[in-house]
Design a protein around this nucleic acid. Structure first.
Lengths: 187, 187
DNA sequence: TGACTAATATATCTTTGTGATATATTGTTA
DNA sequence: TAACAATATATCACAAAGATATATTAGTCA
């Protein structure tokens, strides 16, 4: 009974554990700071929030004081929700799941000209360089927050994982280019 | 109109481009050599094979000569199938998608004791060490095949990506452990 | 001031993908 | 020869992604 799905619930709980917020801000937060290792769609987030309320793990209230938006719904985690989150945190994390289309194309490389792959690898290298810069920007930003007394070690560590991961893939792509173009023989 | 789904078709075509085979062997091949960057389930593979035949991109025939299994169905790629595969290979690969549950748990780390995360990171480091060994095993295996005259550069390169990726994540986890346990301050 | 545009916000639908399970045969081995 | 593992196909329920519809608010700029 290996279950590697149904994590949205815990992601949303984890986000609510930081601060009460709306489905929209949860989505934006994941998009901005989690995109290198996780993603959630609105189609998952909104139904999940409703389920959490139904299960007593979160409570919702309409933010009518400011009158902002079309029925802006703010969600807060409950004590029961924190317990569920904690239980999940203690369980051994399931094995990660990756989908790298570029590796698929390299793997099927014999069906095309080397130039096609070299082009893809060039784009890939550039994109990874940019992502490394972005991640380092986050890390510096967290350093500033730290200097102001806010503890964000864990967020900083996840950003650091991005630097490691993107750097590794950039290095691999450079190596792959050299091998494919015949500049290097050995792996 | 960004479409980052519906790749199963091309994965299956790419597998059939290597050699005619059954849905089962496609699944096993992906499980064994692609698992670090791609995964497909039976629930995708069998319907995809039927669609490919319906679209004329593959042909099927029952392997009755050996009489093995319950209606063993072998699929072959057609010229039309090779053309579709080639067109896809030339298109820029879509951005990769990762789901690392351990990073989710680190990110929500303030909700639990550091010891919980340190334990997860230990398991993670061990698992990555083993995966690096496995990947290096594949690379050596491909070296042997190369020595026998079989060109498997592209397969070897995808295996190499696994070494780079798993090494990066192991290194990150070691660093994260040091930071969380207070042995290291700087990132 | 009004007109446009971008950002905020919720909701839902279809397609795609996962994991589990059912079923049956063949090969191995104790 | 009984038990078990591996091979093989098929399908279901549920999870997840991506697209789209809708509406409000905030900013900007002519």
């Amino acid at each position: 009974m290996k279950e590697n799905t149904g994590k949205s619930k815990y992601v949303v709980l984890g986000m609510l554990a930081r601060m009460p917020q709306t489905g929209y801000t949860i989505k934006k937060w994941i998009e901005n700071e989690y995109s290198h290792f996780w993603q959630e769609s609105f189609g998952q987030i909104y139904p999940t929030l409703k389920k959490l309320v139904a299960e007593g793990l979160a409570v919702s209230f309409e933010d009518s004081e400011t009158g902002k938006g079309r029925g802006r719904i703010v969600y807060s985690i409950t004590d029961a929700g924190r317990k569920v989150l904690l239980d999940w945190l203690c369980k051994e994390p399931e094995i990660e799941k990756l989908r790298y289309e570029i590796l698929l194309k390299v793997s099927f490389g014999e069906n095309t000209e080397p130039e096609v792959l070299l082009g893809h690898l060039d784009d890939f290298i550039k994109r990874n360089e940019n992502l490394i810069k972005d991640m380092n920007g986050y890390i510096e930003h967290f350093d500033l927050l730290k200097a102001q007394g806010t503890d964000c070690t864990y967020s900083q560590l996840t950003a650091l994982s991005g630097v490691y991961m993107y750097s590794a893939m950039r290095d691999w792509a450079v190596k792959a280019k050299n091998v494919i173009s015949g500049k290097e023989d050995d792996l």
